[in-house]
Design a protein around this nucleic acid. Sequence first.
DNA 1: TATCTAAGTCAGCAATTGTTTACACGTTTG
DNA 2: CAAACGTGTAAACAATTGCTGACTTAGATA
Lengths: 223, 223
Amino acid sequence: MTHSDPAVMHRAMPDAPTAGRARDAQQTREQLLLAARRRFAHDGYSSTTVRGIAADVGVNVALINRYFASKEGLFEACLTSASAQIVRPDEEDVQSLDQVISSITRRLASSPGKDDPLQLQLLLMLRSSGDDRADAIRRTVITTLAERMAAAAGWSPADISTEALVLRAQIALATAVGVVTLRSSTGINPLSSAGEEELGGAMGEVLHLLLSPPSPQSGTRNP
Amino acid sequence: MTHSDPAVMHRAMPDAPTAGRARDAQQTREQLLLAARRRFAHDGYSSTTVRGIAADVGVNVALINRYFASKEGLFEACLTSASAQIVRPDEEDVQSLDQVISSITRRLASSPGKDDPLQLQLLLMLRSSGDDRADAIRRTVITTLAERMAAAAGWSPADISTEALVLRAQIALATAVGVVTLRSSTGINPLSSAGEEELGGAMGEVLHLLLSPPSPQSGTRNP
DNA sequence: TATCTAAGTCAGCAATTGTTTACACGTTTG
DNA sequence: CAAACGTGTAAACAATTGCTGACTTAGATA
């Protein structure tokens, strides 16, 4: 069980060679954040080592503790960073249902690789470090994401008759989570090799079924 | 190849001293297996420590290496054990679709706790130790499980026209995986606190949509 | 140019973890 | 009963991990 170098499995070269300055704290900080997010999302918290992250970027391990105080702090920074991207304030307004669904299906089926932002962030939100504060962030993001989907489906906190949509939105989100998980964790086929055509089609059906208002003739049925 | 007793009761508390003999290797072996499966499924591979497992059972750590050679061996034993239960040979024949769906929804919505066999095994199949052999087992189990669902939906390896059902079955399985993951990992509501009524209802809709043959008017589709 | 601050490196510590070896206890059997 | 074997324990080893303090170097400034 002697692993040679775990770093080579993830990255071949240091991150974006954005040659600005030779010593740019801001840049290496973001490089560390990027590498950490990838490793945390893909390998989980405890399997990820700070030495591995530092090696990905090509800097010394001590920088992680300098910039993020601890491994836990780096993980939390990853969560808040991903949170800020996944639930953008400028999209606070309710999107249309078809918009939301097509966005999810498209970004979900884009590529089995883990470098798609949405897929990476979804995976990241499933990882737990055991820390209470980090877990709170994860819960908030997941809940907010589901509520946004529910809102697009017609849910309103005031209207009690639409309350069931929150649960249905969370199930819809769970479907996306499950698909991403199965595709990234186990590379089973045909799920992992499915293109946007097949996967997006079936996913669209499911999302429409769950989120479309329970009125007659709902959604597209595509056999 | 030691078959575990099918009538084994899952205990909620860490280790109930089933009074048989003071020193029963077979029994402590199974206790270790049980405790390991819980910890691996809930915490993942690398977060789980052999000392913790041994402490759950109340024995010395060295016994793990004695009975399972290594932590990796214990994990593999958990996988094969769960595999033997989740894909039982006596259910090799194709079940009816409604049977499969109701079974999944019922066992999935039973309890948010992680001690339900199906939920525990699904979580276990998502955990990776990095070992190739263990990953192969995981893939086989997931694939077989999805193919069983697809077969219940009418898939036949010979009939090329039913090929799409495999992908749809894997998406259905992904939904179950996602629900279990979200319920166990993040305790978000209302998903985590949803009873068999609400959760089973929506899950049944999704599974029927994905697995019902695309013929006219299939099943109940109205919430 | 000389200097000062920030950016980064280096070596090592303390704790944890998987694993092994030697030993003790209890059960069976001659 | 006593030897023999199986079951379990205790202590320690080697490797890894997160983290720290002292040191070095690059880049800006006076």
